[in-house]
Structure formats: C-alpha cells, structure tokens
C-alpha cells in the first residue's frame, strides 16, 4: 500500500513539474516585452532596461526558469495589474467564494447524476430512460454562460423570484470572516436571515454550474450500471428476494463506483472552467470572476498564476482519486 502511494506520489510530482515548465513556457511566449509593460508606455529606454535587470529578463532561459520555480515555491507570483496587489494575496482572498460554489455544485451533480443515471439504466429503453438521456445531451450541449444569462433573465428580470447576482443582497453587512463560506459564516454568527439570503444567491449559480458535470455523470453511471446489472450476482440478489431499490443502490451502484469516482475527479476540471463564466455573469466575487477580469484586462501575470495554481490543485485531486481506487475496490492491484 505504502509503495503504491509512493509511486503515485512520485508520478504526480513529475506531472506537477511538467505543469510548472509548461506554464513558464507559455509565460515566455507572451506578446510584447514584459519589462515595457511594467515600466509603462512612456518610460525611457533606461527605465525599461532597469526593469529588465530587476526581473532578470537578460539571464539565460535556464536561469530564468530556476528563478521562476523558486518564486513559485515561495508563493510569489508578482503583482496583478488590475488589483495592484500581490497575486498570491488575491488568490487567498477570492478562493473561498469559489470553493463554496464548486463544492456545492460538485455534490449536487454527483448525487443527482448518479440517481438519474441509475434510473436510466434500470428503466433502460423506457420513456424515462429516453428522457434522462435527453437531459444529459441538453446539459452537455447548452453553453453554460448562455444558460446563466437566460436564467438571470427569467428568474430575476421576468419573475423577480431570485436575486441578480453577488453573494448577499446590496447593503447587507456580511457575517464575520471565519471560513470564508457565506453559508457557514452566517450560521456561526447565528444569523439565519443571512443564511437564507446567501442560499438564495447561490441557487442560480450552483444550478448552472452543476448541469454539465451532472450530464457527464449521468452518462457514465448509466453505461456502467448497464454493464453491472447484466452480471450474475445481480440476478442472484434479485432471486433471493431483495428489494429492487436495495439491489440497485447497494449491490449494483457499489460495483459501479470506480468510473463514478474517476469522472468526479475529471468533473472538477469542468467545474473550475465553468466557474470562470458563471462568476462573471452572476458577479460572484471569486477566483473565476478574477480570472475573467484578468483575461479582459490582459493581466498576464494573474492569468499564468491562476493557470498554475488551479492546474496543480486539479492534479492533486486526481491523485487522491487514484489513491481512492484501492480503498473502494480491494481487487485493484496496488503494484
């Protein structure tokens, strides 16, 4: 077991090294002279040269890469052109809001996707199967930034049921910062009115964010369940007189767990990507909106920093998914 973890850890470390190298290469490709960008358009040649000197842009590429790696290790990504603050501080500030959104969407898409997938597999060929598969195709095909807009038009502008965006109503003082999760912080402060307000603000973004990953989960669960359900032990369980629901959820779903966990890991990438659009449209003060703004204002330092941090996090999540295989299924060979 330990050897297995170690091997996966080494592979993951190498992969992260590759991610750092690739981000560095992309940053080197950036259009324009970075020194000129930082010094400003009206700076004279000497000032630009001074900035080049300070940033080490005249060093050999290998040297620059080492500097980059050591900066990254210290969490130094430079300053954002937009917020004028160190990017690492920005990331810490904006991260909790995104995590709250993504975690909730991940849970909802997993549970709903699994249930609908099981339903479609069990009722294979019936109208409910066709309906669920239709939902899955729609969920994969409809652009999320568009769906976010349409929901906003419908539920805010036309029906007036839900707020336009943000995490709390305008003029509402947020609860004391403890976890950075608006829901948890309002609970900790004992403010149920704030909790309700925060939840109201989360309904639309979480729903839109969850839809594409739910659609993928449905497809994977349906396909795997169809395979599992055709096996002998399911027939045995049924003929023993176990209630169908128990057979489906206890016996079959448990044996379909591996692909579900794999897709859960891959879906986090989809959720992170989706958050960029959804936070922009719902004015959600998280990393996604920060990224969208960085792109809009050509804040390359910030774009590259986010790319690096988010991809490392994504790689680590998939590392955990790999490790969970052996816990979920003892038959998975550890070697």
């Amino acid at each position: 077991m330990l050897r297995f973890i170690l091997r996966r850890a080494i592979a993951t470390t190498i992969l992260i090294g590759g991610v750092v190298l690739m981000t560095f290469a992309l940053a080197r490709l950036l259009p324009g002279d970075p020194a000129r960008l930082i010094a400003g358009a009206r700076a004279d040649a000497d000032a630009v040269a001074a900035v080049r000197e300070r940033l080490g842009l005249d060093d050999p590429v290998g040297m620059q890469f080492l500097t980059y790696v050591s900066n990254v290790m210290e969490g130094d990504f430079g300053r954002s052109v937009v917020t004028r603050r160190p990017i690492s501080e920005d990331i810490v500030t904006f991260f909790p809001a995104t995590l709250e959104l993504v975690l909730l969407a991940a849970c909802i898409s997993l549970v709903l996707g699994a249930l609908l997938g099981v339903l479609a597999a069990v009722r294979s060929g019936t109208p409910s199967d066709v309906g669920v598969r239709g939902v899955a195709v729609l969920g994969l095909s409809v652009p999320d930034f568009w769906l976010a807009l349409v929901f906003q038009l419908l539920f805010f502008a036309t029906l007036g049921l839900l707020p336009f965006g943000g995490r709390l109503g305008t003029g509402v003082t947020p609860p004391d910062f403890v976890t950075g999760f608006m829901t948890l912080d309002s609970l900790l402060a004992g403010r149920f009115d704030l909790l309700v307000d925060a939840l109201k603000h989360m309904i639309l973004p979480v729903t839109v964010l969850a839809i594409p990953s739910m659609a993928i989960t449905i497809r994977v669960v349906r396909t795997t369940m169809l395979e599992v359900l055709s096996q002998d032990f399911i027939r045995t369980a049924r003929s023993k007189g176990i209630r169908p629901v128990r057979v489906y959820l206890r016996h079959a779903l448990r044996n379909a767990l591996l692909p579900i966990v794999t897709i859960f890991g891959l879906n986090t990438g989809l959720l992170i990507s989706g958050a960029v659009f959804i936070e922009l449209i719902f004015d959600w003060p998280g990393l996604g909106r920060y990224t969208a703004n960085a792109i809009a204002s050509s804040d390359y330092n910030a774009i590259m920093a986010i790319t690096l941090v988010v991809s490392i996090a994504y790689t680590l999540i998939n590392f955990l998914v790999d490790l969970s295989y052996s816990l979920l299924d003892p038959r998975v060979k550890l070697s």
């Binding site: 992969l15 992309l26 986090t268 990438g269």
Partner: peptide, 18 residues
C-alpha cells in the same frame, strides 16, 4: 501533461499567450 490542466484554463492561457 496536457490533460493535467482544466481544459478551458489551458485553452485560455494558450490563447492569451498567442
């Protein structure tokens, strides 16, 4: 290595670089 990045994030970084 290419799959280690969330798809849209990688695409955005590459598109910005070019």
């Amino acid at each position: 290595l290419f799959l280690a990045f969330p798809a849209l994030i990688l695409a955005a970084a590459i598109a910005a670089s070019f």
